[in-house]
Amino acid sequence: MELVATAQFRRAMERAIAAGSYSERVVRLVADLARAGGDVSHPLLDKRESSKKAVLLILTANRGMCGGYNGGVLRTAVARFEELKRTFENVELYVVGKRGFSYLTYRNYKVARSFFEFDDKPAFAEVDAIASELLERYQTGEIDRLDVVYSKFYSISKQRPTAETLLPLAALAAEAVADEGAEEASSAGNLQFEFLPSPRSVLEEIVPTAFKVEAFKCFLDAAVGEQIARMVAMKAATENADEMISSLTTTYNRARQGQITNEILEVVGGANALS
C-alpha cells in the first residue's frame, strides 16, 4: 500500500506542477496588465459589504489509512466554520470526500452539498463544474464569501491544513503587485504588450479564470497531501509490523526452546531414575 501511494503521489505531483505553472502564467499576465492599464480592479477582487451568506468548501479524502490527514483538515475546518458563523448569518458547508462528510454529519453539522467523485486525480472539468456554480452564486450576490479548507502543499516533507479565502480573490491582486516589483528588479520582461481588445476586457476574463485555477490547485494540493500522508502512514505501519514480527518471533522461539529444555530435563530425569 505504501508503494501504491508512492506511485499515486508521483502522478498527483506532476499534475500539481503543471497547474502551478499555469497559475504562475496567469499571475504574470495580471502583472503585465497592471503595468499597462494601471489599476487592477474587478468585482471579484473587492470585498463585499454585506455578510449574508458564506460557503465553506472542505476538501477531505474518500478513504482513510492516511494518518492524521483528514483529522487535521477537519479540525481546521470546524474552527473556520465557527469563525465564519460569527460574521455571517448563514454558512453553507460544501464537503468533498466521504471522510469529511461522515465526520460532519455525525457531529450534526448541516452539509449543503457533498462530492465523492474526486480521487487521486481530480480533473479540471470536474472542479470547473463546482467552481463555476460557486462563481455564479457569488456574481449574482447569493453568497458573499467563499472559503476553502484543504491541506496545502509546501514541500514533500511539509503540508499543513490551511483555511483560505477564495472569493473575493484578494490574493491575486497582491501577488500581481509583488510579481510586478520582482520583474522590474530583474529588468527582464520589459515588453510593452498590446491588449486585444483592451486591458479591461482581458482582466474581466482573467479574474474568473484565476479563481478556477486557484480552486483547481487546492484540489490538486489536497490530492498530493493525501497521498503523502498515506505513504508516510503506511511506511510507519510496515515498520511497526516488522518490529512486531521480530519481537513475536523471539517470544515464540524462546517459548519453544523452553519447552524443548523441559522435555530434555524430563527424559534425563527419567533415565536417571531408571538407572
Binding site: 504588450f193 481588445p197 476574463e205
Partner: peptide, 19 residues
Amino acid sequence: PLYDGEYAIGVGHTPVVGR
C-alpha cells in the same frame, strides 16, 4: 480564435495579449 474573430500571428509579431 479571439473573442470576436480570428487573429493571425506570424514570425516577428509585435508583443500582444488577447482574449
